[in-house]
């Protein structure tokens, strides 16, 4: 694989997307590998949206949404966390390292956090591309229960 990875970041309009913008105005640099896709809420993210990003050539996918409790649509981010966990399982089945996918909570005011998170994630993907094992990321969301249909339960 190429050493300059392509990373898709699905960013919630209400938080992470604004944070990315803020990072820019604060002159906090983040890797150019990150391609931001603005979405109305991480609740919009389905398993297949993530899988398809990989099919189309992404090396890593990050989904960035609001802190738990501050979703503009109340439950969207909670659902997204579950779906991302499910998508990780689906990726693993295919042989794609599930560490190539991660959910992050980034509030609108956390421009610097967005910059460091995306830098860390890019570093992780680079390591994976180089054949290394990704180290556990402390900022990643907790993995919910692994029931098959958990992703669709409220």
């Amino acid at each position: 694989m190429k050493n300059e990875p392509t990373i898709i970041a699905f960013c919630c309009h209400y938080c992470a997307f604004t944070a990315a913008d803020l990072a820019g105005t604060m002159r906090k640099q983040y890797p150019t590998n990150i391609r931001i896709v603005r979405i109305p809420c991480t609740g919009k993210v389905s398993e297949n949206m993530v899988l398809q990003a990989f099919v189309e050539g992404a090396d890593g996918v990050m989904v960035a949404g609001c802190e738990i409790g501050s979703c503009h649509f109340i439950q969207g981010n909670v659902r997204a966390v579950k779906r991302v966990a499910h998508a990780k399982k689906l990726l693993e089945e295919t042989g794609v390292n599930p560490d190539r996918l991660e959910f992050y909570h980034v509030a609108a005011s956390q421009g610097p956090l967005f910059a460091t998170t995306s830098a860390e994630f890019t570093e992780r993907i680079k390591q994976l591309n180089a054949g290394g094992k990704a180290s556990a990321d402390t900022t990643s969301a907790e993995t919910p229960q692994e029931t098959v249909h958990d992703s669709s339960r409220t």
Binding site: E47, N48, L51, V55, L90, L91, E93, T94
Partner: peptide, 11 residues
Amino acid sequence: VDILDSQLKLA
């Protein structure tokens, strides 16, 4: 079907 499609392609 779409999920399985993506999975088969990735695998």
